[in-house]
Design a binder for these strands. Structure first.
Lengths: 312, 312
DNA sequence: GTGAAAGCGCTAACAG
DNA sequence: CTGTTAGCGCTTTCAC
């Protein structure tokens, strides 16, 4: 339109103190301008305390802001439903990112529904091999192989694995990486070397009883833990039993969380680009340029990096 | 209305798969149903990584959900404006909670505007003595006194204080508590004993040079740090210089963060009810019952608790 | 207790 | 390029 007209309108608007009403805009446009972030229910732990979510969320926030979207937080609750599609039907959100998704029946139902109804969504840090959803994940298989290979290079031969629950692709990916690395090195993979926690520090701590015994018996000389929290809990538990990293066993964690740098000895771990994962998930949903750039594949796998520190 | 009518309507709605449109509801009601949470810009640190915000946010989320509100995250950006009032004018939010507020001119302007226009908002963990805003804070003066008294009881006499920037009431409150406790014990308060960091681990780490020297000179035998992150950074820095807690100095942190339990030796600290603070702030804004119960005062001060651990 | 209708403040489509 | 107008899907008010 004519510059002068624009001027005139703008001036008039300023004069009467006009401010557009976002509610009316959203209504008329039939777009909420919100991107929903679905957060899992984590009992006891106040969710964000986990480094993991915090970083991803920050990444999402950065991109959402850049694209003119607001971030709507959806807290799932204990035993609460997963009617993600309803959020779209009621138009509360235009797109959504699912964090902490887990491969259980009701989650699969919810995601299938989202997909079949054509709502834009993206998973972060969880893959479903049966079904192809837009996903941003990191290469945890490679990360796990790197962790185990690192232990092998350090001369360790009896490497235990402290994994998380199998409903997370994170866990199964790591198991695969662990197994592959051992096999490649010609080392046996035995069920007795594999322990399952729940990614909490407490579960790592409690595992110290069994793992400590195995170390004492000389059947384990290193542990690869599927996240830093469990690694740290384990380290503390083992210390109480008189076992020290370095002297009695080597230890590798996963996530490169703040804690891994704080504890002593500092934890060797695998750095995951959580922030970047959040950014990409949001960009895929919101950023026209990013879409145009052809992030074709349904699954993006980001590289991870081993960070060698004192526990190895 | 008649039960039968209700039934009939509900049935018809189910039949045609009717779902209310939240956008239209919000528009017609002139209520967004959103509570905004304003997050400070923290350079470098991806905000949520801080235990502090994570906990508060979880508390807000719990209450918002209970009251039927959604949580809209507002990320401030570097150098970005603080036009909080605009969020209300555009009707994006019905109420808001300001996290990480800091006493600087432009923030005061923004808050004054909110108040003068009568928008409902609440500050968390930051007080303004000049102006009375709805606020939920913890009793950091008492917490600091408890920390310092604890050191005194342990026989320490030359207690340094590693504080944060003065634009946070947190910092000034702690300074006051520190000062009061020393005075009550008849100990001198000298400027040489007071150090200022910025609440980051790095700033604590860097302070180890000066504090280490003071310990070496025998003029300091204990440090009270205004948060755990700085305490931990300091501890690491001092360790590199050959000073160990217990043997060479005592140390008290603040926040009772996860990290305080993870490091070794475990950090004596002050527990702050962050989660509860978030809950209350939200309840004050949203919960009719809570309002009715008469949370009259503009300022709520929650109690904190000293947690004695190994560093003292 | 029920039905009808007038907005809410914008967007988008269309005529001038 | 500009001005006009018909909705968007609900809530609320008002008759009945």
């Amino acid at each position: 339109m004519k510059d002068e007209t624009r001027e005139r309108v703008l001036r008039a608007a300023a004069e009467i103190g006009y401010v557009p009403n976002a509610l009316a805009q959203q209504f008329a446009r039939r777009k909420s301008g919100n991107i929903g972030v679905i957060l899992p229910f984590v009992p006891k732990v106040h969710l964000f305390s986990t480094y993991y979510f915090s970083e991803i969320l920050s990444g999402i926030g950065e991109t959402a802001k850049r694209c003119g979207y607001d971030l709507l937080l959806i807290f799932r609750e204990y035993g609460g439903g997963r009617d993600y599609a309803k959020l779209f039907r009621t138009q509360k959100i235009d797109a959504c990112i699912v964090l902490g998704s887990e491969n259980v029946p009701e989650e699969r139902v919810a995601l299938t529904e989202l997909k079949s109804e054509g709502y834009p969504f993206c998973l972060v840090n969880q893959r479903y091999d049966e079904e192809s959803y837009a996903t941003v994940d990191s290469d945890h298989m490679a990360g796990s192989m790197a962790a185990v290979n690192h232990l092998i290079e350090r001369g360790r031969r009896n490497i235990a694995f402290l994994n998380g629950p199998e409903q997370y692709s994170n866990s199964t990916d790591r198991l695969q990486g662990y197994t592959l690395a051992l096999q490649a090195a010609g080392l046996p993979v035995t069920a007795e070397q594999i322990f399952i926690g729940n990614y909490s520090r407490k579960s790592g701590y409690e595992m110290a009883e069994r793992i400590g015994k195995a170390i004492g018996d000389g059947v384990i000389d290193a542990v690869f833990a599927a996240n830093d929290r469990m690694a740290i809990g384990l380290m503390q538990g083992l210390r109480e039993r008189g076992y020290e990293t370095g002297r009695d066993y080597s230890l590798v964690g996963y996530d490169d969380s703040d804690s891994s740098r704080i504890i002593s000895p500092m934890l060797t771990t695998v750095a995951v680009p959580f922030y970047e994962m959040g950014r990409r998930a949001a960009a895929r949903l919101l950023d026209v340029e990013y879409k145009a750039a052809g992030a074709e594949g349904e699954l993006e796998l980001l590289p991870v990096r081993l960070i060698a520190r004192e526990t190895t």
